[in-house]
Design a protein around this nucleic acid. Structure first.
Lengths: 193, 193, 193, 193
DNA sequence: AATGAATGAGTCTTCATTCAT
DNA sequence: TATGAATGAAGACTCATTCAT
């Protein structure tokens, strides 16, 4: 009584709660008991919907990771121009907003993720993005610039928490810096390379 | 027979093995049994040297985190000039080399670290570094540049693993990019702000 | 599509699969999930046909154990002669062929069967057969011979697996040995007793 | 109070209780909780002495199965004469007395044992004994006789429970029947073969 | 300086069973 | 004639921790 016993959406609700707790306290420290309690179901109910604890994480990746996969697929069919890369960053920034809790989970549980079956999946995604944005022939400094452009967008999620300001402002500022870095990488490369 | 029974350095050896395993498999997934087994002592022996599991981590921070604390202390006594900040980045880069395993541990176990007693310690360090390098009055983009300058040095530890090249070259390239970002932040700030 | 959806024989199919799995992996280690999966139905479907897991076993005994019950009933109405006992062995040998999987199940899950409701049923059957074949007044050696005559037929099912040869040959050989034992028991008894 | 807290013999006591319960209720139905409760220790204490539940069974085999292994070793170094085989049966009968609870456990948990790591060990023992006692060149009936001679000794443990009489008398009677069977196997073989 | 033995709390997981549909 | 969703009880096992020696 009180909360309406929602039907058919249990699987979804498990995913939501699990992701939240995994990101908050870490994968290992989050027990299935906790998840179940928060949902007011039994542990066994979780097992009706997911084969194992790890399976929950896997499903999160499959469901929430799609935007990123699509972005990579898109990128791979574009010409390797500066414009493409810029657009890539813009879309990455947007994708990170949607998949934010998942991203945070990965960021904060790297050691764990690496040992989970999704570890490889995630690593491959990173490799693919990296390959799209940098030019392996360019001087090291420029490769670093490109990778940093990508990587610094993650900074939003924790390094920038210390900085005051509107989240949307931050997002834009980060994107601007990233695009800058990318431009510099290109300018220099076309000169030196 | 066979292995020399080292004397008096057990405490040190525990720290070494623990840090390695914590960084490798994560804090939660590393059991005291594992640590003890790798050292060929009993679990109880660990308790002779450390009060709790968390205590091991704490000791690691106290012993390996000193360079960073000293860096902050140094920074706080310098004038807030561009030169100071540049030197800060240079020293940070060096400090990261020494405390690398510890840094990796923190990077890869953020969710866990946050819930450990060292969480606050570490967060304070980050805040202090952030305060030293950025100017809270500057436009957001420049603050982002400064923070990114600091933050991107961590990229070395995993984002840049996908890039081929000599580690020392990478270190220098990263530092160069970081210094660049810092300079841009300043140039722009003095103009706009 | 593909597999014909058999109608009306589900109960039978459950029994078949269950007996096979019970005999193969043991009663306790065989879960209703496994049975259901192998039949491509849900666990709940099993409960439409049987009240409990134990009920499946019970039904197996009722359906497959009839030959043995009939044999006992027949034996009890015959005169207690050597010829009767010989015929008993012959029919037992035949009955064991039909009820083989059930017999194997019992053989291999004695500890379990004893604690199931069929335990008593089965024990009674054994007692009845034993009572039919041996003479409680005869010397111990002869009683042992008689019981062994009965008991050794079970040997076929596992002790004789190590012996090469045609199954039918084995069956006959075993029967011959059993009949021999019986004859010896009688010869000696009529002399000594 | 009441029971003296015995020291150092915990491992042994675990084995004793475990074997008793395994034989009584079956391996699967016996939980570690039960064993622990009967010993008035915690489940975790069992894990200090044995790595897994299966490990307890394994240790029982290693400790209690030795007589049987020694018997096989002895048999393999004797000439393949009738006398040897007779002695084999006599010693087998004696060995079965010592290892009786273990034997009962195996008898009554065949399905389980087969899936445990000891399954193979035990099967090999059976094969070895079988190989020692029968002559693969002899006619099938005689091979059956030999195998039955061996096998019928197990009858004592359950088939003969229905027969009244002193256990020692039974033991002797069974042995006599077994030796008889063996002699018959030989007599016939040397004539026919 | 360290061990052997043990504990209590908790983990993930599986199972037989139920019931509304 | 079944299924989808769920439960309560229990299972094996692991862990950090303690303490007498």
């Amino acid at each position: 009584m009180g909360s309406t016993p929602r039907r058919g959406d249990t699987r979804q609700r498990i995913q939501d709660v699990a992701l939240e707790l995994f990101a908050e306290h870490g994968y290992e420290k989050t027990s299935l008991r906790e998840i179940a309690e928060q949902l007011e179901v039994t542990k066994a109910a979780l097992y009706y919907h997911f084969k194992t604890k790890e399976d929950i994480v896997l499903s999160l990746f499959q469901d929430l990771g799609r935007p990123m996969d699509e972005l990579i697929a898109w990128g791979e069919q574009q010409p390797r121009t500066l414009e493409t890369k810029q657009e890539l960053l813009r879309r990455y920034s947007a994708a990170m907003d949607i998949g934010e809790p998942l991203m945070r989970f990965v960021q904060e549980n790297q050691a764990t993720v690496r040992e989970l079956s999704i570890g490889q999946i995630f690593k491959n995604r990173m490799l693919a993005m990296s390959a799209l944005i940098r030019d392996p022939e360019a001087p090291m400094v420029d490769q670093v610039r490109s990778v940093t452009a990508l990587f610094c967008m993650h900074a939003r999620m924790f390094a920038l928490q210390t900085v005051e300001g509107d989240p949307e402002d931050k997002r834009e500022a980060v994107l601007e810096v990233a695009l800058d870095l990318l431009t510099q990488a290109h300018a220099s490369s076309s000169t030196h390379g």
